[in-house]
Design a protein around this nucleic acid. Structure first.
Lengths: 163, 163
DNA sequence: TTCGATAGTAAAGTATCTTTACTAAAATAG
DNA sequence: CTATTTTAGTAAAGATACTTTACTATCGAA
C-alpha cells in the first residue's frame, strides 16, 4: 500500500490551502474595512450620501483656516492632480470653495463652506460615537492598552515598510 | 475686552480641525495599509512583481483542488464578472488555468498551475515571517491576547455594519 | 534678470471594479 | 417529460479613483 505516500501528498496539498496560515493581516483588513463601512453608513444616515470614501477621507485633511492643494496632496499621499479633481468634486457639491492665496498668486486656498463645516462637525460626532462603540466591544478596562498597542503596531509596520 | 468671546470662537474653530477626534479608524487603517505594503514588498522580492494587490488578494481564496468562479466571487465579495476578469489576468500571467467542470457543463474550475502553487507556498513563507515580526513588535507575551482582541473587534464591527 | 523650482490645471491613460445584457446548461414545477 | 426558472459564465460598456505626461504662470535665488 502506498498509504503513507498518499497521506503525505494529501497533507502537502492541504497545507497549501490558503486560509491555513493565520496572520494579523486578515483581522487588520477586516476591522479596517468594517470601520470605514460604519463611518460611511453614519454619513449616509446624516444626509451625506453624495460623498464617497475618497471625499470623506480627504476632508479631514483640510484645516479650518484653509489649506493649499499641494499641502492636501502631501497629507493624503496623493498627487496634486488627484487632489485637484477631488476638490473640484467637493466644490461642485458645495462642501468647499477655492480662493486665491493673497501671499502667492500661483497658489489657491481650499476652504470649507458652511456645509463643509457642518460635515466636519457631524463627522466628529460619528467618530466619537464609533469610538465609544469600539470601547464597549473591546471592554472599557482593556481599551486604552489595546488602542496603544494598535497605534504602536501601525507606526512600526510603517517604519518597516519605509526601508 | 471681548477676550472670552474671542477665545471661545477660536476654541470652536480649533475643535473643528479634523485631526482632533482620535478614533480607532486611523491606526486600524494605517496598520492594515502598512501590512499590505509589506506583503507586496515581500512578493516583489521573490519575483512576483507582475501581480497586483487584487491578484494577491484573490489567489488565497483558490483551493488546491480548484474552485469555481462563482465560489471565488462569494469568497471575495465581488461579482463573478470581476472574478472572471482577474482569472483571465492570472491565466495570462501563468498562475492559474480554467478547466471545464465534469459535473456541470456550465461551470469551469479554476486551478493553480505549478507557478501558482509556488506563489502560494512563497506567500505562506512571507505571511509566517510577517506574523513573527508582528509578534516581536507587539511583544511575545502580549501577542496572543492582542490578536484575539483584534479578531473579535473585526467580527463585531462586521456584525454591526451588517445591520 | 534670468532660470530653475513650485502651484496649479488639463487631458489622457490605467486599474479595478459594477451594471446591463446575453447564452447555455441545469434544476424544478406541473 | 416538457416548460419555466435558476444558475454559471461571458461580453461589453460605464464608473471611480486614481497616475502620467504635458503645460502655464508665478516665485525665488544666483
Amino acid at each position: 500500500m502506498a498509504r503513507r505516500g498518499k497521506d503525505a501528498e494529501q497533507k502537502a496539498l492541504e497545507a497549501l490551502d490558503a486560509g491555513q496560515v493565520e496572520h494579523l493581516g486578515v483581522p487588520l483588513w477586516r476591522a479596517s474595512r468594517a470601520y470605514v463601512n460604519l463611518m460611511m453608513a453614519g454619513y449616509r444616515r446624516l444626509g451625506y450620501g453624495d460623498l464617497t470614501e475618497s471625499h470623506t477621507g480627504l476632508l479631514p485633511h483640510l484645516d479650518i483656516a484653509g489649506t493649499r492643494i499641494t499641502t492636501l496632496a502631501e497629507r493624503a499621499g496623493l498627487t496634486k492632480q488627484a487632489i485637484g479633481q477631488m476638490v473640484s468634486d467637493l466644490e461642485a457639491r458645495g462642501y468647499v470653495s477655492r480662493a486665491p492665496d493673497p501671499s502667492d498668486a500661483r497658489a489657491k486656498i481650499v476652504r470649507y463652506t458652511s456645509k463643509g463645516r457642518r460635515f466636519v462637525r457631524d463627522g466628529q460626532t460619528i467618530k466619537k460615537d464609533l469610538q465609544a462603540r469600539c470601547r464597549a466591544l473591546v471592554g472599557g478596562d482593556k481599551f486604552e492598552a489595546f488602542a496603544e498597542q494598535l497605534e504602536a503596531l501601525a507606526t512600526q509596520l510603517e517604519d518597516e515598510a519605509a526601508d
